[in-house]
């Protein structure tokens, strides 16, 4: 009995907590002039639902373009980042090279610097190079990531050394060992880094706001903020934009959920 009550209580709390999101989804199917009606008016739950808003989004802005931009930028950062940061993580965890201790200390120190602390000078740096308003300026600076290196490092250092030593005796080189022995045994680390990078990159707002000036390379977060200010104000369309914008993240999240939670937990217990 107590269990049932507790479950009901939890269900109610969880639904209330998710209410803003449910409201977004529900509103995206309502006619624009029916979105803003009071809860008590009786009309709140009595609207004709349709896909009209979704069609309107595509008529009013180049949603496809924004979606492509976001996907292209995010996937590039994720994939290049996996390669670059896992290699560095392995070099720090397993190899003895000149300066590796000092440099690892430096990488850990860089983790403290939030992006906001370098946005302004980097804006100047990129203006100087003439890289503004490009994909490059949204991808390249975010490939190397101190936190990803750290996550890979902590994972690799926990792997047993015996396999590597056996492979060494058999004459395998370091790269061979990395690709054929370490990679297949490190799926959790790769999955955690993938989903953390994906989420961070998918939602990034400040940087593209500063460096993009047209729809050509502009990603979804800046586009949704802009769409909200585009007259006439049609809340149904805006909510439909939102649902479509978050759908890819939902897919990634549901696919990688287990590793995601593990990755977050790792930030708390090891950081």
């Amino acid at each position: 009995m107590r269990k049932i009550l507790l479950t009901l209580f939890l269900a109610a709390t969880a639904l209330l907590y998710a209410a803003p999101i449910l409201f977004m989804v529900y509103s995206s199917f309502k006619p624009d002039n029916e979105v803003l009606v009071g809860l008590t008016s009786g009309r709140f739950f009595a609207a004709d639902l349709s896909w009209q808003n979704y069609a309107d989004v595509f008529h009013r802005v180049s949603f496809g373009r924004y979606l492509f931009n976001s996907l292209f930028i995010t996937l590039s950062v994720v994939l290049l980042g996996l390669v670059v940061n896992s290699l560095a993580g392995y070099a720090f965890a397993r190899l003895h090279w000149f300066g590796h201790k000092a440099l690892f200390g430096l990488v850990l120190a860089l983790m403290i610097i939030p992006f906001e602390a370098i946005a302004v000078p980097m804006f100047y740096q990129m203006s100087y190079l003439g890289w503004r308003d490009s994909y490059l300026v949204q991808i390249l600076p975010f490939v190397a990531n101190a936190f990803s290196i750290y996550l890979f490092y902590t994972f690799f250092i926990g792997l047993p050394r015996e396999f590597e030593e056996a492979a060494r005796v058999d004459g395998a080189g370091t790269f061979r060992i990395f690709t054929s022995l370490i990679l297949p045994n490190s799926k959790p680390a790769f999955a955690s880094v993938t989903i953390l990078t994906f989420l961070m990159q998918w939602g990034t707002f400040l940087w593209p706001l500063m460096v993009t000036s047209g729809e050509r390379v502009r990603p979804l977060p800046v586009a949704v903020a802009q769409f909200q200010t585009l007259p006439p104000l049609q809340w149904g369309d805006i909510m439909a934009f939102g649902v479509m914008m978050v759908a890819p993240v939902m897919v990634i999240f549901l696919l990688f959920q287990r590793w995601f939670v593990a990755g977050i937990a790792a930030t708390g217990t090891k950081g």
Binding site: V84, L87, F92, L103, I118
Partner: peptide, 22 residues
């Protein structure tokens, strides 16, 4: 040699896009 080679891309990126702007 291998260690430097493996770490170089990430270290270059961090130096150019975090260290330098900082």
């Amino acid at each position: 040699r291998v260690g430097w080679l493996m770490a170089a891309p990430a270290l270059t990126g961090l130096a150019l896009f975090i260290g330098l702007p900082f």
